[in-house]
C-alpha cells in the first residue's frame, strides 16, 4: 500500500512542477538565452544546416526574437518538438515560445490556454501522392491508406473531409515527418497529408521531386504562427511585435542591409518609430530602443526570410501566393507602429 502512495506522490510531483510563471522576459534575461520550440526537422522551416546550426523560416523568427531581446540572433537554444509534445513543452515552461508550423485554432487558443501572436504563414492541408499512383484529385482517394502526423489539426480535418465526402480511408498515424517519408516512399501508404508547405518541403527533399505530385485540393485553413503561453501579456506583446516588425519592415522597405542606416533616422516617421530613432517604443515594450533593428538584422525582413528559406528560388519553391504582403494582394498584414 505504501508503494501505491509513493507512486501517487511521484506522479503528483511530476505534474505539479511548472505552473503559471509570470514575467517570462525576466526569466529569459536571467537565463541569457531564448528557448524556442521548433519542428523536429522540416527542410526550409526548421532544420539544422550542414554546420549543425538551426535555420529555416520558423527558426528565423526565433532568431529575430532573440536579437530583439539580447541583440544577438544566436542567443537562442532550440528544442525540437513533435506535434504531440509541443503544447506540453510550452505549457510547462520548457520553451518560451513555440514556432513550429502550428495552426491557430479556437480550442488551442481558448481551451489549451495559449496565445497566438500572429500568423506568419497562411497554409492549407493538402495531399501528396506518387505520380505513378495515377491520382489527380483528392476526390479519387476512396479506400486509400493515408499517412498522417498524429497530434495535429490535419488528423481532424482528414476525418471531416473523408466523412463529408462519403469516402472511406485507412489512417496510418505517425509521429514525425521523417517517419511519414519512410512509410510513404515504401508505399506503406498511398498518400501523405499535411500542410501544403510541409508537403512542398518533403517533396523538395526527395531525390526525384518530379515523381511526386501535390493534389490540387486544399481541405482546410491552416493559419500557422508562433505562440506563447497564456498569462504573460508583456511577453506575448514582445513576441507579437517582433513578428509585426518583420512584416512592417518588408512593407516599409527596411532590410537586413539597410536597417542600421535607416535607424539613424529617415523621412518616414513610422520607420523612425519602429527603429527607435523617434519615440520610446522600446521602453514601452521593455526592450532596448533599437530592438526592431536587431530583429530585422537577424535574418532580414519577412520577405527576405521567406525567399531565403522557402521561396521560389529555394528547393522548396513556394510562391508567395496568399503569403504576399497585403499591398501585393496577399494576406500578410501588420498593424501600424503608432
Amino acid at each position: 500500500m505504501k508503494r501505491l502512495y509513493l507512486l501517487a506522490a511521484a506522479a503528483a510531483l511530476g505534474l505539479s512542477t511548472g505552473g503559471a510563471g509570470a514575467a517570462t522576459l525576466d526569466d529569459v534575461m536571467a537565463k541569457g538565452h531564448l528557448q524556442c520550440g521548433v519542428n523536429t526537422g522540416l527542410v526550409g522551416f526548421a532544420a539544422p544546416d550542414e554546420n549543425g546550426v538551426w535555420e529555416g523560416f520558423d527558426v528565423a523568427y526565433c532568431r529575430a526574437l532573440a536579437a530583439a531581446i539580447f541583440g544577438d540572433p544566436m542567443a537562442v537554444k532550440f528544442t525540437p518538438v513533435t506535434g504531440k509534445t509541443r503544447f506540453t513543452a510550452l505549457a510547462s515552461g520548457e520553451i518560451d515560445v513555440l514556432s513550429r508550423n502550428t495552426t491557430w485554432t479556437f480550442s488551442r487558443d481558448v481551451d489549451l490556454k495559449q496565445t497566438f501572436v500572429g500568423i506568419n504563414y497562411y497554409d492549407g492541408q493538402g495531399f501528396m501522392a506518387k505520380k505513378s499512383l495515377g491520382v489527380g484529385s483528392a476526390t479519387e482517394l476512396n479506400g486509400a491508406s493515408v499517412c498522417i502526423q498524429t497530434g495535429t489539426t490535419t488528423e481532424l480535418n482528414l476525418a471531416d473531409y473523408f466523412r463529408s465526402n462519403g469516402m472511406e480511408y485507412d489512417p496510418i498515424p505517425i509521429e514525425t515527418n521523417a517517419e511519414a517519408k519512410e512509410l510513404f516512399f515504401a508505399d506503406a501508404c498511398d498518400v501523405y497529408t499535411t500542410d501544403r508547405s510541409g508537403l512542398a518541403a518533403t517533396r523538395a527533399s526527395h531525390e526525384d521531386p518530379d515523381s511526386l505530385v501535390v493534389l490540387p485540393e486544399i481541405i482546410s485553413k491552416e493559419p500557422l504562427g508562433p505562440l506563447v503561453s497564456h498569462g504573460d501579456d508583456q511577453w506575448a506583446d514582445i513576441a507579437r511585435w517582433v513578428l509585426n516588425a518583420l512584416i512592417s519592415a518588408e512593407e516599409l522597405g527596411v532590410t537586413a542591409d539597410n536597417a542600421m542606416e535607416m535607424a539613424a533616422g529617415t523621412n518616414n516617421p513610422e520607420i523612425n518609430r519602429m527603429l527607435g530613432s523617434e519615440g520610446n517604443f522600446g521602453e514601452m515594450i521593455g526592450l532596448s530602443a533599437d530592438w526592431a533593428v536587431h530583429a530585422i538584422m537577424a535574418r532580414g525582413n519577412y520577405a527576405e526570410i521567406f525567399e531565403r528559406n522557402i521561396g521560389v528560388n529555394t528547393p522548396i519553391g513556394l510562391e508567395r501566393g496568399a503569403n504576399a504582403i497585403w499591398s501585393d494582394g496577399g494576406l500578410v498584414y501588420s498593424p501600424p507602429f503608432r
Binding site: 505534474l15 506535434g83 504531440k84 503544447f87 506540453t88 480550442s107 488551442r108 481551451d111 489549451l112 490556454k113 498524429t150 497530434g151 488528423e155 481532424l156 498515424p173
Partner: peptide
C-alpha cells in the same frame, strides 16, 4: 494517451 490527450489538452 496520444491523440485524445493532445487534442483536448487534458494531460492530467
Amino acid at each position: 494517451g496520444g491523440i485524445t490527450l493532445n487534442q483536448t489538452g487534458r494531460e492530467l
